[in-house]
Design a protein around this nucleic acid. Sequence first.
DNA 1: ATCCCTGCAAAGGGTTTGCAGACGC
DNA 2: GCGTCTGCAAACCCTTTGCAGGGAT
Lengths: 166, 166
Amino acid sequence: MKEDKLSETKMEVRKIFTAYLEKKKQRKTPERYAILDEIYTHKKHFDVDTLFIQMKNRNYHVSRATVYNTLDLLLDCNLVKRHQFGQNIAMYEQSFGFRQHDHLICLSCNKVLEFCDPRIQQINSTMGGLLGFNVSHHSLHLYGNPIVDENNICKSCNLEVIHKDE
Amino acid sequence: MKEDKLSETKMEVRKIFTAYLEKKKQRKTPERYAILDEIYTHKKHFDVDTLFIQMKNRNYHVSRATVYNTLDLLLDCNLVKRHQFGQNIAMYEQSFGFRQHDHLICLSCNKVLEFCDPRIQQINSTMGGLLGFNVSHHSLHLYGNPIVDENNICKSCNLEVIHKDE
DNA sequence: ATCCCTGCAAAGGGTTTGCAGACGC
DNA sequence: GCGTCTGCAAACCCTTTGCAGGGAT
């Protein structure tokens, strides 16, 4: 069931990527497809090094340079998005088939939760209009500490642990 | 008039910084005050290297290490804020006497405009409550292209140029 | 006088680049 | 076969760190 949906998504993104590469007259190399596949095999959020090591562990070798290069292509065709959550390292996430959402970052464990709030779109259009801009995208990150119950169990982290297993 | 207000602000932030250093039992070195002064002499947004070079040009030498060290202190006592607008380089801004605001970054010239929208606070509390977090701060960046008039003059950049001269 | 802070330069970490060889087209 | 993508490693850039000397307390 889940498997089917997963491979269905993979097929779909491969098609999109192929169309993109053809349009841009770029080569359809096995490395590029392997990277795309790897991204859509795992959980949504990842950093470059994690991706690189995952592929190495599967004995599919690609260089970091190729990972970076391919991510640029995938960003350009909207199959992944890039975020700067902390300070230095860039985080990426799958972006096919997911609706617009923003992120809340846990200050105690750095986990990332997602949420949707339509008011952000209202802010975009109001402020764009006011300042004379067409707002094409935004980044909204909330940072906070989890509210713990009397047993000192972090409700959000529990939630997130479940989230990771799916 | 403007001058008066500027030096008034500088006096004020110096006092706050002094109180902070005393509370934290940190030394009140001339370098630290020089850096604070430099920050409050110029426009609100800056990066470390710009600040460093400005001071060098004034023939006040401080090392980059000291700049970074002092910025950490100023961050801690809320006299400056740090932002990640682009990808790599950190941007800082004065934060004394300015009310909460967010930023719109021009995709054509990278200029930074500020805006306030109370709805962001509503999002913070709604989503914090929903996800079980106390949201302590947030970062909201809008990215967009300026709406140009028939003469191809960017209304926003004009605005920003005026802004820079103030 | 103490010992924290500064300056310097080297190291660190993520990302980019240059070049030679490989391979999609 | 041509031209560009890959792999490798070095370069890059911003930031942090280690150490020795100097200045605040």
